[in-house]
Amino acid sequence: MRIKASQSTLLIIDIQERLLPAILDGESMIENTSWLQQIARRMNVPTLITEQYSKGLGPTVPVLREGVEADAILEKMDFSSAADGELFKRPGGDRQQFVVCGCETHVCVMQTVLDLLERGNQVFVVEEAVSSRRASDKALALTRMRQAGAEIVSREMVVFEWMERAGTDLFKSISREFIR
Score class of each variant (00 low, 15 high):
residue 159 V to K: 03
residue 48 L to Y: 08
residue 135 A to H: 10
residue 88 F to H: 13
residue 10 L to H: 04
residue 101 C to K: 04
residue 129 A to F: 02
residue 166 A to T: 09
residue 121 N to C: 14
residue 59 P to R: 13
residue 63 V to K: 01
residue 49 I to M: 09
residue 120 G to F: 09
residue 163 M to A: 07
residue 145 M to Q: 01
residue 30 I to E: 08
residue 150 A to N: 09
residue 86 E to Q: 13
residue 58 G to I: 00
residue 76 K to T: 02
residue 20 L to M: 14
residue 105 T to C: 11
residue 67 G to M: 10
residue 172 K to H: 07
residue 76 K to W: 01
residue 129 A to Q: 08
residue 112 T to E: 08
residue 127 E to P: 06
residue 63 V to G: 05
residue 155 R to T: 00
residue 33 T to I: 06
residue 76 K to P: 03
residue 107 V to L: 14
residue 28 S to P: 05
residue 31 E to S: 14
residue 178 F to G: 02
residue 143 T to K: 12
residue 55 K to M: 12
residue 107 V to M: 13
residue 22 A to Q: 10
residue 66 E to P: 02
residue 109 V to H: 04
residue 84 D to M: 10
residue 34 S to Y: 13
residue 118 E to Q: 13
residue 145 M to C: 02
residue 7 Q to E: 15
residue 10 L to D: 10
residue 105 T to I: 03
residue 162 W to N: 02
residue 167 G to Q: 07
residue 133 R to P: 02
residue 31 E to Q: 15
residue 100 V to Q: 09
residue 162 W to E: 03
residue 138 K to Y: 09
residue 78 D to A: 15
residue 24 L to A: 12
residue 88 F to Y: 15
residue 132 S to W: 00
residue 19 L to W: 06
residue 124 F to C: 03
residue 77 M to T: 15
residue 170 L to G: 08
residue 168 T to G: 05
residue 105 T to V: 00
residue 140 L to V: 13
residue 48 L to Q: 04
residue 97 Q to N: 04
residue 164 E to C: 08
residue 171 F to W: 10
residue 67 G to V: 05
residue 46 P to C: 01
residue 65 R to Y: 11
residue 123 V to I: 04
residue 46 P to D: 09
residue 68 V to Q: 04
residue 64 L to E: 00
residue 123 V to E: 00
residue 6 S to T: 11
residue 112 T to L: 11
residue 106 H to I: 11
residue 38 Q to F: 07
residue 155 R to I: 02
residue 93 G to V: 05
residue 110 M to F: 13
residue 18 R to P: 01
residue 70 A to V: 09
residue 142 L to C: 05
residue 165 R to A: 12
residue 108 C to D: 03
residue 42 R to T: 06
residue 101 C to M: 05
residue 122 Q to S: 13
residue 101 C to F: 07
residue 11 L to Y: 07
residue 29 M to L: 15
residue 49 I to K: 11
residue 92 G to M: 04
residue 22 A to M: 12
residue 45 V to M: 07
residue 95 R to D: 08
residue 148 A to L: 07
residue 20 L to I: 02
residue 118 E to F: 09
residue 175 S to K: 14
residue 118 E to A: 15
residue 124 F to Y: 14
residue 54 S to H: 13
residue 159 V to G: 02
residue 120 G to S: 08
residue 148 A to W: 04
residue 5 A to D: 02
residue 123 V to C: 01
residue 133 R to K: 14
residue 93 G to Q: 05
residue 18 R to G: 00
residue 123 V to D: 01
residue 103 C to Q: 11
residue 34 S to L: 15
residue 123 V to R: 06
residue 90 R to D: 00
residue 126 V to N: 06
residue 149 G to R: 10
residue 50 T to L: 09
residue 15 I to N: 08
residue 56 G to F: 13
residue 149 G to A: 12
residue 10 L to V: 01
residue 11 L to G: 00
residue 105 T to D: 00
residue 122 Q to E: 15
residue 163 M to C: 00
residue 73 I to R: 04
residue 158 V to Y: 06
residue 77 M to W: 12
residue 60 T to I: 07
residue 73 I to N: 00
residue 74 L to S: 08
residue 96 Q to T: 12
residue 35 W to F: 15
residue 53 Y to D: 14
residue 25 D to F: 09
residue 170 L to N: 06
residue 61 V to H: 07
residue 107 V to Y: 02
residue 24 L to N: 10
residue 58 G to W: 07
residue 143 T to P: 03
residue 107 V to T: 10
residue 61 V to S: 06
residue 171 F to D: 03
residue 14 D to E: 04
residue 41 R to A: 10
residue 175 S to W: 12
residue 75 E to N: 14
